[in-house]
Design a binder for these strands. Structure first.
Lengths: 151, 151
DNA sequence: AGTGAAATGACCCGAGA
DNA sequence: TCTCGGGTCATTTCACT
């Protein structure tokens, strides 16, 4: 479904979405037309989900990342839907995963500082159906990337 | 340092980096020149770190996310540097954070399936300076976003 | 699936307020 | 900092291979 040229295009666009079709064409020894059509196909098929600008969290006043682990004591379909919808609507939460592990959910939260995280925990506490199990404060980023390895 | 127009531009570009300067200008009731110059300024100042294409992990054969928690028993500067450099070079690891918590590091790993995660763990085991403490398999994504809330 | 060329439209940079 | 306007270059389409 993805040939070698597709994979190369995806690899390059994951690193830099501002590459022009012309630059991609030169890199892959093709003309602009096939590159253009392949990209359109990959977008339409949903392989490419979108193009975004990545910001420096510190420069926009959200330099503190905290992972919040929560459990759901009464594990019903309704509670799950309810909680997941609330989480999706919280802008501080950039990622949330339902885990098979010691806790039910892990939330990645972007805040200005620990004080702001405290405010967030109070918001979470209002959702009666989950309990905060633990929080892990990030000391520093070792790696942050959005590039998925395609083999 | 960031005025209201900057914040609006950043908010829009975080959601869709393919918006044209013209479209941004119309949205914010300005002409193209100030929008163009503000974006260039935000890029130069490092507020905007880059533009990337986001892919659908399943569509590229990396639909399984696993969190890997590791600890570093002998906690020296050399071991830290060493481990962090190895992690940064591993393409399966998209994110890695040094935590203040029960474990020292958390790695977010993208793999095809659990078998491939097993291979990854074997690679990690070769690094003698860290010990895998636990793994948490993702059952499903509740939320994945790269959009940082700017207030 | 690819090339090449032509039209459409975006980017970018002045001059001026 | 903004508007306006124009030159340059990338995107997009199409006829052909």
């Amino acid at each position: 479904m993805l040939d070698n040229v597709d994979k190369q295009i995806l690899g390059l666009l994951q690193k830099n979405a501002k590459l022009t079709i012309k630059e991609l064409a030169e890199e892959l020894n093709l003309t602009t037309s096939p590159i253009f059509e392949r990209i359109k196909r990959l977008e339409k098929e949903g392989v490419i989900e979108g193009y975004v600008a990545l910001l420096n969290p510190e420069r926009v006043g959200k330099g503190q990342v905290v992972f919040c682990n929560v459990s759901m004591p009464i594990y019903t379909k309704e509670n799950i839907e309810n909680f997941e919808n609330i989480v999706r609507s919280m802008p501080q939460v950039l990622e949330c995963y339902h885990l098979a592990g010691l806790v039910d959910y892990q939330l990645k939260v972007y805040v200005k500082d620990i004080k702001e995280y405290d405010d967030f925990l109070k918001q979470l506490a209002e959702i009666q159906i989950v309990k905060v199990h633990s929080s892990a404060v990030v000391l520093h980023d070792v790696k942050y990337s959005t590039v998925i390895q395609i083999d």
